[in-house]
Write a protein that binds this DNA or RNA. Sequence first.
DNA 1: AATAAAATAGTAAACGTTTACTATAATTTT
DNA 2: AAAATTATAGTAAACGTTTACTATTTTATT
Lengths: 354, 354
Amino acid sequence: MVAKPAGKKATLTDVAQASGVSLATVSRVLAHSNYPVSEAAKKRVLQAVAELDYVPNMAARALKKNTGSDIGIILPNISNPFYMQTLQGISTLAMESGHQLILCNSMRRAEDEHALLYSLYERRVLGIILSSVDEKADTVNSYAARGMPLVLLDQRLQGANCSMIHYDTRKGTMLAMRHLIERGHRRIALATLPITRWTRHETVAGYRDALVEAGIGAEDSLILVHDQEQEMDNGNTDLQAGAALAARFIREAAGATAVLCVNDILAFGVIQGLTAAGLCVPRDVSVVGFDDILLAAAYQPALTTVRYPSFEMGRFAVMMLLDALRSAEGREPLHLQLEPQLIARDTVASPKGI
Amino acid sequence: MVAKPAGKKATLTDVAQASGVSLATVSRVLAHSNYPVSEAAKKRVLQAVAELDYVPNMAARALKKNTGSDIGIILPNISNPFYMQTLQGISTLAMESGHQLILCNSMRRAEDEHALLYSLYERRVLGIILSSVDEKADTVNSYAARGMPLVLLDQRLQGANCSMIHYDTRKGTMLAMRHLIERGHRRIALATLPITRWTRHETVAGYRDALVEAGIGAEDSLILVHDQEQEMDNGNTDLQAGAALAARFIREAAGATAVLCVNDILAFGVIQGLTAAGLCVPRDVSVVGFDDILLAAAYQPALTTVRYPSFEMGRFAVMMLLDALRSAEGREPLHLQLEPQLIARDTVASPKGI
DNA sequence: AATAAAATAGTAAACGTTTACTATAATTTT
DNA sequence: AAAATTATAGTAAACGTTTACTATTTTATT
């Protein structure tokens, strides 16, 4: 409680001296070793600790034991509400299991991502949870080969030799498409961000599959991809991209009665753009999003969307990491796929005239 | 590039051996010391590093140099979009200045917060950015007295002996109130979460001040505080709290034409509750929020709110920390107050009949 | 009562760095 | 050309822990 004036911090040696026992005994008491120590000695040590305001030095411990207890996590963009939930899941489980989190932000730049991976490796983190912006698996594999446990978050990187966790995006997309088709929509647009990640490719595939399945046949002119550079990402860009895509929808997607948006924020942007142009959702155009972020339900009209269990994804990512740590060296990478769920709310209606 | 088979990781000694120079020379090359080393030696060292896939051990370095380079951050709830922006600001500046972030989640529990503070102290972080849920300043002060640089985020803790950064909440509240009053509102309710933190007290004070200023006079029956336990916070609670408060507004705030909500999410909840009860915003009731989260602009109707520069708050928090580190020991704690700004959008109208 | 096992305590050697010293060669300065 | 710097290299002592050994005492087992 009482703060020491200043000066150097007390060390184990100081405590040993003050309590009249050996260095080893002090260490045993303080590191909660299961080596037996008499109650008397324990008491004296604890008292000296309190008197000297001794605080263990984790760097020394980490050096000696040659292992930290931290988990590294690299995200491309912290301010995406979607990752927030995931981060909450990660943090919850990490804390429960006594690990601390080193949070890194790659800002969507592959070179920053590489630098961060390296610095996490330097720190000897236990493992790394990564949502990579690198489209090649080389870097990731080089760390995997060095024995660093890695979990790829929300993606499936071709040729990557590590565990991955992601959603069944194709299925999710089909869920959304069927929902629209069942309500009578035939011309359905897809509003998407650049198709780089695997998950986006899956979305496009699911979109086409559903169209074919329904006997409508795919028509790529209805795939609206937002090409604009996403340099400075202040989190606002998805919203703006949505508005821009709404404009293109009106111009280019003649006769389309519905639009599928690859995430909820994008959907909000689209709805905003549509509304600004005098169109009414869902009367004139139906809209479906992805993710089911917290605000999807609060939106007016409440957003119909495909729910991905983002909190759970975070928890599972940590679980996979811990599991990889427990089991011996040679463990096969795990692939986990989480199930999507359609949440029908108020942005979908039957097209006019039906 | 090439991964080593397995085995122990290479150390400085290994590199020294492989390159035929001394340990000291290797260290000098690798730690970017300004001690002169011949080009020839440097080259040989670098080559050996590549061959052995040597990676420095940060724990050893931290031990020897007796200082880490990490910044700790403790938030009560990561999944609040408001903190997200702040976190982005923190992370951006931290990264620019070469620091890593240890992210901790106190889950709104004071005892967890204490444990986290201790473990950050154990790690010898450079400083801590804290949004405390503890209403006493004792714990914080004990770390401040031990010389740990601390920045309190988004709050002003009475008697705390450390730097703080927060918004001018009272002014922000008055801004919002004046906006409503100017448009003819006379009976204005305040929808708030439990009044624990200093910032909430300021809100209430600002609310009363504005009412008095306008010659209306404060009437506490229009202050609606959501008392419910906020045990498990999945981020959804503010939304639900808002809906609950909307119900109370309708029951208890007879004749009120507007409601001020202490954050945007709460405002969304209130609007939802109001709408569900058949009331129209802003025709029947005007609503104002606080924070201006990303989605406030995208909401339908777009939310009128008081913007707090949350991204900047994050940046400033890191700046204050770095500043405290640069300047010698005895530095007075800083108090920084950020200016609010009213963002007039579509949830405020003149009351009916005017 | 003798022996084996467990409990308790201490000594000293790591862990992988950085850096204060010391030492020598190369370069300036006078 | 001698003296004073400067550049370069090496040795060895920390930094604050943990833990393998060794040594002693206590307790349990026969």
